[in-house]
Design a protein around this nucleic acid. Structure first.
Lengths: 191, 191
DNA sequence: TAAGATAGCGAACGAGCGTTCGATAGTCAA
DNA sequence: TTGACTATCGAACGCTCGTTCGCTATCTTA
């Protein structure tokens, strides 16, 4: 039933708030189901649909699917608080979207506005994939004077240079070798 | 005792893997404690230290502090800044970081460059919390002519207007009521 | 070395857990 | 209209849960 949609929402909100799933009795109370067996049936449906799972010790746990967000592509008839997403608009988790090699990936907080014109603002989190290899045009985290700096990598007369994306800042022309920490692959901003 | 440190690590690993905490008996098994009362004592210590908590329905749940990473960070080259978000609002996942109310939150893909000066570029995903209430200064997704538009909400002579952040675009002054789909709370960009 | 604190063990216990089952009401298709 | 299917309720049940208590072993420190 499409009640399940709103049940799932409630569960997701509860989990987001507490980082744990409630007992069947509490779920029932939360969702307005008076009988634990209704909850059990619903849980079974969710397990089948891939939203919930059991840990090895038989405890209820959310799956990856549980955390997917709907992607509202097209103009939706925005009537009421009905959960959209039914349609084909894909769903995804942001982590999966941004991070391909978790062990190689770190987040770096942006300081300063030297990359402002590339839409990278102070306080943003930059998703960086640690890699030796960077190529011209990549935005990279380089280590200059023991400090991280985020700049666009470019080539001038066969030499690598670091270009800020803000006219107020100068191009960096490092002498000798250039130490690259990693390549920017994504960005996260929280308002 | 400093055993607690490794107990915590094991718990963290377990949680990262299953997104749920095990029962006392399972915890005991996991940590090598043979008695549930030892587990109870340990849990009490962790609650005191602010790593664990109980949900309103008395279930064990991790706190924000549970997810803190040891500031350790490789001591590599003095002065190397610690790449992980060193702020206090630390989150396990990016989804967690950005999304507070999963059921009300959707992602919307940005079209056009009308918000360029706010660091929002074409192709970015905007994290939108569906809400009736938006206030002056918020960046909102509004519905104009059945289309989503992302603009900053402002007030002009008691009327709501939608301001692009790009001088090349005009301010939108909707006649009559303004339909707000939701408020932007975050942004995700993949390169 | 004696006193006190800190972990941990093991047993006992009642409350609450998730399961199961039969019954009911609503929906949909034949 | 009938029959299959689904979502829910309510009650019953056994088992596991987290709690509690008394005990021991190991550290710490005065």
């Amino acid at each position: 039933m499409s009640n399940d949609r709103s049940y799932l929402s409630l569960l997701q909100d509860y989990y987001a708030q507490h980082r744990a799933l409630p007992s069947y009795a509490s779920i029932g109370h939360l969702l307005g189901l008076k009988s634990k067996s209704s909850v059990a049936a619903m849980v079974a449906r969710f397990k089948l649909a891939g939203y919930l799972d059991s840990t090895p010790d038989k405890r209820l746990a959310p799956t990856k699917r549980f955390f997917e967000r709907p992607l509202a592509e097209a103009p939706v008839q925005a009537g009421m608080p009905n959960p959209v997403d039914d349609g084909q608009g894909d769903a995804l988790t942001i982590d999966d979207y941004l991070i391909e090699r978790p062990s190689q990936t770190v987040l770096v907080r942006v300081k300063g506005d030297s990359m402002m014109d590339a839409g990278i603002l102070e306080g943003d989190l930059v998703v960086v994939e640690k890699a030796a290899a960077a190529k011209r045009g990549d935005i990279v985290v380089a280590i200059v004077d023991g400090q991280f700096t985020l700049k666009r990598l470019d080539l001038e007369r066969g030499q690598f240079v670091l270009k800020p994306e803000n006219r107020a800042y100068p191009v960096l022309r490092p002498e000798g070798s250039l130490e690259i920490f990693g390549v920017m692959v994504g960005l996260v901003r929280k308002l």
